[in-house]
Amino acid sequence: MKILFVDGYNVINCWPNLNKIKEYSFSGAREKLEDILINYASFNNCKVYLVYDAHMVAGNVEKIHSDKYINVVFTKDGETADQFIEKMVNNLGRKSEIMVVTSDWLEQQTIFQRGAMRMSSLEFYHDVLKSEEKIRKKTKSNYAKDRNLLEDSISEDVLKKLENMRRS
């Protein structure tokens, strides 16, 4: 299973929709990102670590909220999201396919040296949009398949007569 590490605040500051939400509610932007990533992870069959910096919060201990597809992590006091991600990538080694989402250039280089792939926040935004479009198409096609339409149950001749009646 592919593992995806996302620098939460980096993504929130980069994505236009989340940046707008952040202006009036940081927690709202975090919740929206978590919802988006749960959909993305379930559709793409991957595990996501959504990591937020909490290193400036005095006395903060590492907090992890886990779900089937996502782990939301607030780093401990004195630890940045970048440091947490680097530590996790080192621990996982090259056993799994690992992707790190951040626009921090130095972090991208460090992660790449440790065997993980990297993607900028903006590239990931476009990847998420593509996945959401695929989900819409799939649900739309499933919806169309499951419908029972009258036209599927009657002959062509009767269908033409009904159409003529409708138009007159």
Results as ranks from 00 to 15, higher is better:
Y40G: 00
K22V: 11
A29V: 05
K134S: 15
L50E: 01
K87F: 07
D157V: 12
F26C: 05
L50A: 01
K145D: 11
S42I: 09
S131L: 12
D53H: 01
F74G: 00
A29I: 06
K63T: 08
M117C: 05
N71K: 07
M1Q: 06
V101W: 12
T110E: 09
H55R: 06
N164K: 15
G59I: 01
M56L: 05
G59D: 02
R147S: 01
E132F: 15
I38G: 02
S103G: 15
T80A: 08
I21C: 09
K95S: 13
D146C: 05
R30A: 01
S131T: 15
S27I: 06
H65Q: 06
N45H: 12
K68G: 02
N44M: 05
N164A: 13
L33E: 04
R136Q: 13
S141E: 15
K68L: 05
F84C: 03
K137F: 13
K161H: 13
I111A: 03
K2T: 02
A41M: 03
G28Q: 06
I3F: 03
Y24F: 11
Q108M: 15
F112D: 05
D157T: 12
R136D: 14
A81P: 04
K20W: 03
E62V: 02
D82P: 06
V61Y: 08
F43V: 01
M119H: 09
K87T: 12
D7M: 07
Y24G: 08
L159E: 13
K160F: 11
N17Y: 10
M119Q: 14
D104E: 15
D146Y: 07
E133I: 09
E31H: 08
E156D: 14
E79G: 00
N60E: 07
N90P: 04
F74P: 01
